[in-house]
Write a protein that binds this DNA or RNA. Structure first.
Lengths: 336, 336
DNA sequence: CTGAAAGCGCTAACAT
DNA sequence: ATGTTAGCGCTTTCAG
C-alpha cells in the first residue's frame, strides 16, 4: 500500500514523474521508467481508484438493474454484459429492484452521486417518470426493451420483438394442429403483458382461429404464479390441447399442475414458452421455448453503453434481435 | 450537478458550513441549515462519491465473488447478502470467476486499488495461494465455506457442514430401505468433492453398508456433467435403486438419463440431492433436496463483513449453519 | 525530460 | 456557530 509520493521519495523523482512513468502517458526517460516501475512493484503500489475517479470523472463501474434475481431469464443477460464490461476493464454493480418502482427510481437517483459511469436496465416496465429521471441522470443509460414513449428519442436500447416471439411460439403449435390453445400471459398492466398477448392474438387470427379471452390467464412470471393462474384456467372447464406460456417459470408451474391433474405432456397437452433458460433441459419432458437472446441482449447493451461512456457515439442507436424457437419435447402434434 | 462550493457561493456561507449542514455533523444553526438544504435541493446537489471515498477511505461497495453465475445455488446467496448490504447503504459489485483460479486471484489483486471495502467469496475451493493473497489484501474478506488450511486463523467464515448434508441425504435413503445407492459427486480434486464423499461413506458405514467406489461417479456440477457422469455409471451395469446427487443440477441430469432409459422416479430410482434450489419444484417429479441455507449463508456473510468493515469487531468469527433435508416426490421406499 | 503547482470535491481539525 | 486551511492520491498544465 504505497502512493506515488512514497515511490517518489524512494526513487528521488518527483511525484509527477512517477505518475507519468506508471501511467505511460507523458514524457519519461527509459531509465527513469525502469527504476520507478521496479520500486512500484517492490513497494506493492496500486493506484487508489477513488483518487483517479475524483480526478478523471469516471469510476470504471456500470450498474446493472434487474427486477428479479431469482428469474433465470436474467442470468445470461448478466453474463453477456459482464463479459464485455470485463474486457473493457469495467466492473458491474448489481442493483436488484424486486419489481419495485420506487427502488428502481432510487437506483436512478443515486446515479447523481456518480458511483457508476452508466446504467443498464434489465427490466421491461418503463413509464414516463422513470424515463425522464433516467434522461436527466448525469450518466448514459441503455434499456433492454423497446420503449417508445416520450423521452425515448435519445435513449439507446437493445430488444427482441416480444410480439414476434409469442407469435412464433403460437404459430408452431398451430402448425402442429392445435386449435384450442391457452395463453398463459403476464399482467396487461405492463407493456410486455399487452405486447405478448397481441402477438398471441395475431398468430391465432392469421391462421383463421378466433382469439378467445376465456382462453387467456395472467400470472406474475413466477412458477408459483403460473401454477395458480393455470389452476384458475382449469376451473373454467374449457377444453384445450396446448399452452403458450409467457416464460419458462410459468410453464414449469403449468406443467406441475398438468401432472397433478393426470394430464400428460406432450400426449394430452403441448407446452411452448418464452425465455429458453438453461432449465428447459431440466424439466421432464424438456421444455420447448423461444430463445429471447438474453446473452446477446446483455452483451449488446454493454457495448452500446460503453460507446456512450467513452464518448465514441453521441446519437441514438437501437438494436433489434430476433427471437429463435427451440423445440424440445414438450410439444407434439395435436390429437396423438 | 452542483458541489458544496456552488451552494456556498449561492447561499453566502462557507463550504464547510454547507458541508456541516448537509451532513448533519458538526455545529450549524437551524436557519443556516434550512437555507442550505433548500439551496441544495434547488440546485440538485448530490455528493460525489469519489470525493468522499478519497477522503474517508471507504467506497460503500462490497465485492461478491462467485464461480458460476448459471448455477442457481448462488441466487439466494446473492440475494441474502444483497439484502443486508443494501440495508446498510452498500452496493454489491459482482465478480464472476467462471471457476478460474487466475480470475479469482485477479479479483483479489484489484482489492489493492480499493474499489470496494471488502469481499465475500461464494466459492468453495480455497488453496494456500489464494488465502494468503486474501489475507494480505487491504480489506476484510469472508468465506462461505470452512477452510482450515494455514492462514485461516483470522479469516471470518460462514458455512454449512458439507459432510452432514450428504450424510442426512444418504441416511434418509437408507431409512427408506435402499441399499444400493449411487453417489453422484464432485471431483475429489476439490475439497468439497472429498468432504461430500466422506459424508456419503460415513452414512453408509454407520448403517452397516459397505462403501463401494464402484458406486461412485463424479461430475462437474452442471446438468450436462451430471448426465454424462451418470451415463458412465450405467455402463458399469451395477444394480442400484437410489442416487445421492451432490447438487440439483446434476440430479436433473441424472433424472433425464433415467427417463431416457425408461427408469421411473421414484418407482425404480429414488433421487435426493443437495442445494434445494427453486428448481426442485420445477422438475417432474419434484426433487427432494437438502437445503444448504444459501440465503442465510449470504446474509450472515454480509453481516460478518460489515462488522469488520465498520470496525465493530477485530477477532475471528466462524458461523456454522445446519443443512435441512426437504423431502418432495423424487424419493420413495425401496422395492415398491 | 523533469518538477512545481493547482485542482478534482469532500472532510475535519483548528481558529475565530 | 462559522470560516480557514490542509489534505486525501492522482492527473495535468505549465515552467524550467
Amino acid at each position: 500500500m504505497s502512493t506515488i509520493y512514497d515511490i517518489a521519495e524512494e526513487t528521488g523523482f518527483s511525484p509527477s514523474t512517477v505518475a507519468r512513468a506508471l501511467s505511460g502517458k507523458g514524457y519519461c526517460s527509459e531509465k527513469a521508467r525502469e527504476i520507478i516501475q521496479q520500486a512500484a512493484k517492490r513497494m506493492d503500489y496500486a493506484p487508489v481508484q477513488a483518487a483517479k475517479a475524483l480526478k478523471n470523472k469516471y469510476t470504471k463501474k456500470v450498474m446493472f438493474c434487474i427486477p428479479d434475481i431469482y428469474n433465470p431469464y436474467y442470468f445470461s443477460m448478466i453474463e453477456g454484459a459482464n463479459r464485455v464490461l470485463e474486457s473493457h476493464g469495467y466492473y458491474m454493480v448489481l442493483a436488484h429492484s424486486e419489481h419495485s418502482k420506487s427502488r428502481e427510481m432510487g437506483f436512478v437517483k443515486v446515479l447523481r452521486e456518480r458511483i457508476v459511469d452508466g446504467i443498464i436496465f434489465g427490466s421491461f416496465d418503463f413509464y414516463p417518470g422513470l424515463v425522464s429521471a433516467v434522461k436527466s441522470a448525469p450518466v448514459p443509460a441503455v434499456l433492454t426493451a423497446l420503449y417508445e414513449g416520450a423521452g425515448a428519442e435519445n435513449l439507446d436500447c437493445v430488444y427482441v420483438d416480444q410480439i414476434k416471439a409469442v407469435y412464433i411460439a403460437a404459430a408452431e403449435l398451430i402448425r402442429l394442429g392445435h386449435r384450442d390453445i391457452v395463453f398463459l400471459g403476464g399482467t396487461p398492466r405492463e407493456l410486455t403483458g399487452r405486447e405478448r398477448q397481441a402477438g398471441f392474438r395475431q398468430a391465432m387470427e392469421d391462421n383463421g382461429l378466433a382469439f378467445d379471452p376465456e382462453m387467456t390467464v395472467v400470472g406474475d412470471f413466477t412458477r408459483a404464479g403460473g401454477e395458480e393462474a393455470f389452476r384458475g384456467f382449469l376451473k373454467r372447464g374449457r377444453p384445450f390441447t396446448a399452452v403458450v406460456a409467457c416464460n419458462d417459470l410459468m410453464a414449469f408451474g403449468c406443467m406441475n399442475v398438468c401432472r397433478d391433474m393426470g394430464l400428460r405432456i406432450p400426449g394430452d397437452v403441448s407446452v411452448v414458452s418464452l425465455d429458453n433458460t438453461d432449465f428447459c433441459c431440466c424439466s421432464v419432458p424438456m421444455l420447448s421455448s423461444v430463445d429471447m437472446m438474453q446473452f446477446q441482449l446483455g452483451s449488446n447493451a454493454a457495448q452500446l453503453l460503453l460507446e456512450r461512456i467513452e464518448g465514441k457515439r453521441d446519437y441514438k442507436k437501437a438494436i433489434a434481435l430476433e427471437p429463435v424457437l427451440v423445440m424440445r419435447d414438450s410439444a407434439a402434434k395435436a390429437g396423438k
